[in-house]
Design a protein around this nucleic acid. Structure first.
Lengths: 193, 193
DNA sequence: TGCGATATGGCACTCAATATGCCATATTTT
DNA sequence: AAAATATGGCATATTGAGTGCCATATCGCA
């Protein structure tokens, strides 16, 4: 916990105001003034916490990311995975499960086109981790870098499709689709040909 | 050709200034003032052509899109394709070919994270056309809508990877990768299981 | 070629929003 | 209870968007 209760209160209110406003009108169309008004926090106070809107946004994104990493508990990069495909399936299933339980925040982060820049570092990290896993494959007609890029980008587009269509399948089914449509084919495309 | 030579001149200069500035500092960080200065066009004149920065951007995007449609010459939606997979391969190959020949404009449009909102209508159109093609398949364990979403989103991420890594493969090879990594597997995932 | 139409350029101005300094007040920590 | 710190409100500087006005330059067309 950070030191002062007032700080936690202020930042919590600002974060909630940002998310709700962005869901209503899009991140691009909201101002710091609006956020402070909805949060019922003095305009002047905002700048004692964040330099601009993007900083608050980054803070919100980091919090959601921390929660995700906590839940997925991905093993460190030098760990030997006994069944990588199963690993991806599990991660996918848990991921979709978590998103379902925190819809508001993930609709905000994933569906607003003006928030892509926030996801960039997150996707980069995921790509690097994935590339590490794929690099252990013997034959590689497609570079692990490209394959990792494909898996992560496709995973994000799958999450977007799912949220955009009001989650027509349960998380388990999404894990299967992720495996059958993305992971398994990438694996095969790297090996065969 | 649009009517007045002065109009064409002004809009051309503004478009070039926008692209070069956005490539240097990112679309998010440029102002109308900067664009008019670099284009050597009066600030006041800008608003006689576009209501804001986004409008000029849309104009640029639309021009590139028109060029692409011209080159790909996609048959109308009610056309029966004899070999859909081959169709996707050809489109992919020509697409990568065209991007290679117009790098500057496509780096600008595809790699700037703050330009995603411009691509949205373009991707929507591509998704709808693709969904139409996939809907003719008999067995469908995965909905044509989801499959189309996957193919188009993956195609865009593939283009991005290619530009970001300074085009390590020729367009023909990219067409193959598009087919082997994305189109063919999607086809199979829809049928089998 | 010349003329009416139209596009451009520059200036002054309003408006909206960011951003900061100052100080009184409220809340928290110890 | 006292010292430390966070907040709120006000005044103000700054930046960039957007507009009205009018003189000038360029264009299309007869």
């Amino acid at each position: 916990m950070s030191k002062d209760r007032r700080i936690r209160r202020t930042q919590k209110l600002l974060a909630e105001a940002l998310v709700s406003l962005a869901l209503e009108k899009g991140y691009k169309n909201i101002t710091i003034q609006e956020v402070t008004e909805r949060a019922d926090i003095g305009y002047r106070t905002y700048f004692r916490h964040y330099a601009g809107l993007d900083e608050l946004l980054m803070d919100v994104a980091q919090s959601r990311l921390d929660e995700i990493y906590e839940i997925l508990n991905i093993p460190p990069a030098d760990t030997e995975l006994e069944d990588p495909i199963l690993f991806f399936y599990d991660v996918g299933k848990n991921l979709f499960q978590h998103i379902q339980e925190n819809q508001t925040n993930f609709r905000f982060l994933l569906l607003d086109n003006n928030l892509r820049f926030v996801l960039e570092p997150i996707m980069k990290r995921a790509r690097e981790r994935t590339e590490g896993i794929l690099s252990s494959l013997p034959r590689r007609n497609i570079s692990p870098n490209l394959a990792a890029n494909h898996i992560i980008a496709s995973a994000f587009s799958l999450m977007r499709w799912w949220l955009d269509n009001d989650m027509p399948h349960p998380p388990e089914r999404m894990g299967e689709i992720f495996t059958n449509l993305i992971v398994q084919p990438t694996w095969l495309a790297m090996m065969q040909e």
